[in-house]
């Protein structure tokens, strides 16, 4: 029997790790979300976060810092080929999502991010440990 079986990428034995949801919570929408693998590099002056997000570009990436949580989100365009059928699948397509807690000594205003060839680089400078001296006034005259 030569019945053409249709492959669904959602069923593919993905090499990617899915975003865990809290118990009882389900993902809204049909797309899967994956945890992008990251390298974190530190050189004392800055921390650099490097994330693999294939298919994501400048228009489909979001980097946010709220309080002390840094979140990266990517929504790549699904790939389709006109007139071709998926016959073999090792990876599923989906969004990327991951959050990190950053320490207090981060210079939040000067975080920069760049994406190239599907690799996101976020540079997080450390705040100068400028122990600000607080001038103490004297109010009792005499």
């Amino acid at each position: 029997m030569d019945t053409a079986k249709t492959y669904d990428m959602k069923e593919s034995p993905s090499s990617k790790e899915e975003v865990a949801m809290p118990e009882g919570v389900e993902r809204f929408g049909s797309r899967k979300a994956f945890v992008p693998p990251v390298d974190i590099v530190d050189n004392g002056k800055q921390t650099v976060l490097i994330a693999d997000m294939p298919g994501v570009d400048q228009d489909s990436i979001e980097v946010m810092i709220e309080k002390n949580v840094l979140t990266i989100k990517g929504k790549p365009q699904p790939i389709e080929f006109q007139g071709l059928q998926l016959v073999y699948s090792e990876y599923a397509e989906g969004d990327f999502e991951r959050s990190f807690t950053v320490t207090e000594d981060v210079d939040r205003d000067n975080i920069t991010a760049n994406i190239k060839e599907g690799v996101l680089t976020v540079v997080i400078p450390k705040a100068r440990p400028a122990a600000r001296r607080i001038a103490v006034g004297q109010s009792d005259a005499g």
Binding site: S15, D52, L84, Y88, G118
Partner: peptide, 24 residues
């Protein structure tokens, strides 16, 4: 894990292979 992961599309005219290879 096979690296890089591949997806393959095909028809009578040929095939298209796609692999996730960020940074390469």
């Amino acid at each position: 894990r096979a690296f890089p992961a591949f997806n393959i599309w095909s028809n009578a005219e040929g095939a298209v292979l796609a692999a996730e290879l960020p940074g390469v």
